[in-house]
Amino acid sequence: MTRELLLAAFIMCVGLSVAGAGTHLYQWLSRQEAMLRMDGRTVLGAVGHLVMSVVCGPYIMLQMGWRQESGGTLSMTSALISAVVAFGWAFVTGLFIMSVYLAIRF
């Protein structure tokens, strides 16, 4: 049981670290804030934004949960929901990255 939980935590860590690195790389290269979107000037641009949203989504969700409300406070509900969604999404992203790594490696 402990092995399975540690493996799931490792996969989430991989997904979250890839999402964070991808988000900062995207923001550095495109000089704009990363956000979840599907728009674009061309079809290729829209597909690029969609791929970026899927890969970088967990990190963007965590950032969205920590945004302040109008009174300068944090909403605990928003932070908890975004954290649950982000870590679940990070597991899926990490599972995809680990599968690609193992497919290339072996």
Rank of each mutant, 00 (worst) to 15 (best):
T73W: 07
G48H: 06
Q63G: 12
G65V: 04
S75P: 01
S75E: 06
L74F: 08
L25V: 13
Q27Y: 05
L74I: 09
M35Y: 12
L74M: 11
H24I: 12
T73V: 13
A34W: 00
L62V: 08
M64C: 02
M52P: 01
I81E: 09
W28P: 05
H49G: 01
R37K: 07
R67A: 04
E33Q: 15
L80T: 09
T42A: 04
V55Y: 02
M61V: 01
L29F: 15
V54K: 03
Q27A: 02
I60V: 15
A79P: 06
Q68S: 03
M61K: 09
G22N: 06
G65S: 07
G71T: 03
Q68K: 01
S70N: 06
G72F: 04
L74D: 05
G71K: 06
L50Y: 01
G48D: 03
V51N: 08
L25E: 09
R31A: 13
L44D: 08
A21H: 11
E69M: 09
L50A: 11
A21Q: 12
Q68P: 00
H49V: 00
S78M: 13
S78K: 15
T42L: 02
R31F: 06
L36E: 04
L44V: 14
R37C: 02
Q32E: 14
T77P: 04
Q32L: 03
V51G: 07
P58Q: 03
V54R: 05
G72N: 06
A34Q: 03
L50I: 10
I60H: 12
H49D: 00
P58H: 02
T23M: 14
Q63K: 10
G71I: 00
T77A: 10
A46I: 01
S78E: 15
V51F: 10
W66N: 10
L50D: 00
M61F: 12
L50M: 10
G65F: 02
S75W: 07
R31W: 05
Q27W: 08
A46N: 04
E69D: 08
P58Y: 02
R41S: 09
L44Q: 09
G72M: 09
T23H: 03
V54N: 03
Q63P: 00
G57I: 08
Q68G: 02
I81L: 15
V51L: 13
L62H: 08
I81P: 05
S78C: 14
V43T: 09
V54L: 14
R41Y: 01
A46D: 02
L25S: 12
Q68V: 08
V43H: 00
E33S: 15
C56N: 12
A79N: 08
G48A: 09
M76F: 11
Q63I: 01
L80W: 14
Y59T: 06
R41I: 02
H49C: 01
L62Y: 07
Y26L: 04
Q27E: 12
L74K: 10
L29I: 13
G57Y: 06
